[in-house]
């Protein structure tokens, strides 16, 4: 399966085979992480995050890769592992860079770092909130039908519940940001 084929499948909802194929790049990331104070579990988390970034990007209109998918995934992992090592306060050894690594990853990684924190904040919400938000934002279920199925009085009540959940998520996201060294979002 060629890179354009993989991107096409990721874009068009036939992602399973493509994703399985992409895991072939995991061992290399595993080596890099394990040679630099990390575990296999660290490598898996790192790599799965990179896959999610690629997956999300592939769904964006007009996404173009300037290098191979393998290089792209590895570059994301390498950069994020470097950042993790700095965060852990270890002697920050410079991880070897691939010659064709894309140079413009910094912005992408800063943004994805924030998305990652937001994801963790959302995950940390109670099941009720997460269920409501998933139904509304991912399954595109109308508020009125969500209200019915979770036993709320009506659309207004569902809207209020959704607001409260989002407020809580935002609060948790903010406190996660404060904990990590991930740069605060810059507002121009």
């Amino acid at each position: 399966m060629s890179d354009p084929d993989i991107l096409l499948q990721l874009r068009t909802g036939r992602e399973h085979k493509a994703l399985v194929k992409l895991y072939a790049h995991l061992p290399k990331v595993e080596r890099m992480v394990r040679n630099n104070n990390g575990t296999r579990a660290d490598a898996k988390d790192l790599f799965q995050d990179a896959l999610i970034i690629l997956f999300g990007k592939a769904k964006e209109e007009g996404f173009k890769l300037t290098c191979s998918i393998g290089t792209y995934l590895f570059a994301i992992c390498r950069n994020r592992w470097q950042e993790e090592l700095r965060r852990r306060g270890r002697f920050a050894q410079e991880l070897e860079t691939a010659p064709d690594e894309p140079a413009d990853l910094a912005e992408l990684l800063a943004e994805e770092g924030r998305f990652g924190s937001a994801e963790r904040a959302l995950r940390s919400l109670g099941d009720k909130c997460l269920d409501l938000l998933k139904r509304f934002y991912l399954l595109k279920e109308p508020l009125i039908s969500i209200a019915k199925s979770i036993g709320l009085a009506g659309e207004g009540a569902a809207k209020t519940r959704k607001y409260k959940c989002l407020e809580e998520a935002r609060k948790r996201y903010r406190s996660l940001l404060a904990q990590t060294s991930v740069a605060q979002p810059q507002h121009p």
């Binding site: 994703l19 399985v20 963790r120 998933k134 989002l166 979002p185």
Partner: peptide, 25 residues
Amino acid sequence: DHRTLLGGMQRLALRPAVDKAYRSY
């Protein structure tokens, strides 16, 4: 912040496929 939360929501949506592929792998 809301834009970021929606981005986090999208990641949440993609994760199961990535986990499933890991099991197959």
